[in-house]
Design a protein around this nucleic acid. Structure first.
Lengths: 243, 243
DNA sequence: ACAAAAGTGTTAAACATACACCCATGA
DNA sequence: TCATGGGTGTATGTTTAACACTTTTGT
């Protein structure tokens, strides 16, 4: 589990559903790399996934949307639940205690944030160029990290990222269009789209086969050419068309 | 959400995680039909999915296993989370109030069971011939109902069943072997296996293509012939071999 | 012998894969 | 004019689908 605006939450967690949290793996795609948003907690060197709690009269998915908007400034985000992390052993109160101390709080032993949490895992796909990462009240920074070079993460957050990635891989073919439309800018080249695929699947694909397959889906519209200044043929730029 | 052994749970729900429940869609396959287990509540005519709560020091998935074992008598069940139902509007305290009254309980307005619950949906696949359905403390019966002829269900349980079925359809190809091994008896005919497929996908498949595809997976072992007394060639009986 | 269901064979179409080729571009 | 990356064409192999044919069984 993680946290947002904890100033607004008393030591008893009033106003929020007890024992339930959500953690989000927020994916962006930039320079042919998948990246995720991580928070760094003040004076602790601890990294964590953005997370939040559910208000007493708020839908679970709405809470996820609210939290996503707070971290990225975006309101129309593609997001989906992928797993509930509910092992009793997953929660170790120590990291949270240090975080709170580093924020000048002196938590009692049965402080709300130090109890066991079950956490609903969400993955979100955002347009890297549009998101404006914002730290939460307990953290110094909220920034993009290359999936292949993640810092050590709090608790079981590493496992949560792993599971989110697995989910992406399993469902890529089925969700292709929605996902690519969420992760890429409005227009993109075929090479960029292929690179997104390859990054998620972690395998090289054949260039010509990929092109054919994508075009055969009938969801791409060719706009014009993109002159990159490179000494080679200018690639076409594509856009998704409403199905 | 639902309930188990509520006698052991006081009006404050002590010993259990608050606000969190689990509901299970327990699938069995019999006479070429998919069936699920439903509870019927005493004197109320209300039908519901089997459900339960999580003990304070229990893993979420372990709680699901415990509940599954209580309802079916089986301990080695294939089960998986598929969605968290967390809409604020989903919980209507009225049905639960009637159920409690029908059981001679006089719930206070803020009784634990009458508050909002977020519920983790599990689907489970069991061998129909081995399961021994057992009602829980609040219900009269726990029985199999044909998926195509379900009675009206409490709350959003109809939607939960729908979502579970969707999940089955989406993942059938990928999970094929595990699932068929869980749902079918130890030995079965190719026609039975095909019928299971057709029931889950809700579409007819070509007989010969299906046979070829299944055999090409290399996980079926042909045992011997099954003489049904029918005036036709006796089908072979198959068994899954450990991959 | 016949009907009914099971198993196998045959063919054609669809799809994927690999490679080759041509094109445009800037150095 | 060359190297580079992009787009398309072609040959090959694999998978899927549809249908026909044969086999086995009880009546």
């Amino acid at each position: 589990m993680s946290h947002q605006s904890p100033d607004a939450i008393g030591p008893d967690g009033a106003g929020y559903l007890p024992g339930l949290a959500l953690d989000a793996v927020i994916f962006g795609f930039h320079e042919n790399q998948l990246r995720i948003l991580l928070l760094e907690y003040r004076n602790t060197g601890l990294f964590a996934l953005p997370g939040g709690f559910i208000r007493e009269h708020e839908d679970l998915n709405a809470a996820a949307r609210r939290m996503l908007a707070e971290r990225t400034g975006l309101s129309d985000i593609y997001l989906e639940q992928f797993y509930v992390f509910g092992d009793q052993a997953r929660y170790d109160p120590e990291p949270m205690r240090s975080i709170m101390r580093a924020n000048g709080l002196t938590p009692t032993d049965n402080h709300w944030l130090l109890r066991r949490f079950v956490s609903v895992g969400y993955y979100a796909l955002v347009d890297f160029t549009k998101a404006v990462p914002r730290p939460d009240a307990l953290s110094d920074s909220c920034d993009w990290y290359d999936l292949n070079r993640l810092p050590a993460l709090m608790q079981d957050h590493q496992a949560i990222v792993q599971k989110a990635l697995e989910t992406l891989r399993i469902n890529l073919d089925r969700k292709l269009v929605e996902w690519a439309a969420s992760l890429l800018p409005d227009t993109f080249t075929m090479a960029e789209l292929q690179s997104l695929y390859e990054t998620i699947l972690n395998e090289k694909l054949h260039r010509s086969g990929f092109q054919r397959k994508m075009l055969s889906l009938g969801v791409l519209e060719r706009i014009d050419k993109k002159y990159t200044g490179g000494a080679h043929k200018a690639p076409y730029v594509y856009r998704f068309v409403a199905g």
